[in-house]
Amino acid sequence: MVGIVGYGTHIPRSRIKVEEIAKVWGADAAAFKKGLNLNEKSVPAPDEDCATLSVNAARNAVKRAGIDPQDIGAVYVGSESHPYAVKPTGTIVSEALGACPYVHTADLEFACKAGTEGMYIALNLVKAGEMPYALAIGADTSQGAPGDALEYSAAAGAAAFIVGAEDLAAELVDTHCYMTDTPDFWRREHAHYPQHGGRFTGQPAYEKHVFGATNAILEKTNMKPEDFDYCIFHQPNGKFPVNAAKKLGFTEAQYKYGLLSPTLGNTYSGSSPMGLAATLDEAKPGELILLVSYGSGSGSDAFIFRATERLLEIRDKAPRVRKQLDEHKIYIEYGAYAKFRRKILKAD
């Protein structure tokens, strides 16, 4: 049996409200709030990036796991905002944690799915008996083009999971993946901002893959939506995951703990993994959790986890997601946001 032995998250303290962004572009804030169920989003400080978010989240995961970082055999960082085009984020994270030098690291990229991609690899490496522990991180400081609909959701945050084969806080029950070549969102080399297919990102992209992976894992395990205590679907905004849950036959009681996007935004590779972390903050031993990610381009990874007694022991060894999300927020205006996100052209 393999599963999660420790988990941790990091959310930058700055927030910008939907009204503040809409004001600059002459857009209707109420329409975004109602239509996409978005109220505010996290903004990274100028000295935060994918590497720093990853390290701070992973340190919380190590605290909960209570392991020696030297025992971590692999570190995978999933992101679409790696600080370097060439030079791994994984070595920065491994070095900062103290996992070097006997460790395998790789940077992963698959739009919003790179975090669960790392989890899938890490779980299977441990399952194969290659290493006692592996670390998978989903982290992003997402960029949305100024004035684009994405600017209202592109946020920053990270979730880290240490997987192992003993002392599990959540056991892995099963996994299933669903991938096709679907061009709904991309960023070309050297392009600063991504492009997307607008409404095309909905039904033929997000829904097709999320539904495909969910239905496949339910069939594989012979389970029904009502068998689960919690579900987490990728959260590009506050509307897609709620609609997906309802259409698949899940209820608000199952998705409410994992739904963070209305006040966090979309943390891309960190999105559904952070929803899983928030759910682990609440789950009771024996309860079942369904996690389904989505990454444009496109694919979904589905996982079923069962919480154990040990989850209760490790939960309060690091800050909970809701505490990081709801407390000590710093609200900023669009000017500071534009400066923080390097949207202002300055002299060299």
């Binding site: 400080a45 935060e48 590497a51 720093t52 390290v55 340190r59 600080p83 900062a96 060299d348």
Partner: peptide, 9 residues
């Protein structure tokens, strides 16, 4: 916390 200190251009 782990942060970015500086960058060389």
């Amino acid at each position: 916390q782990f942060r970015r200190i500086n960058e060389e251009g």
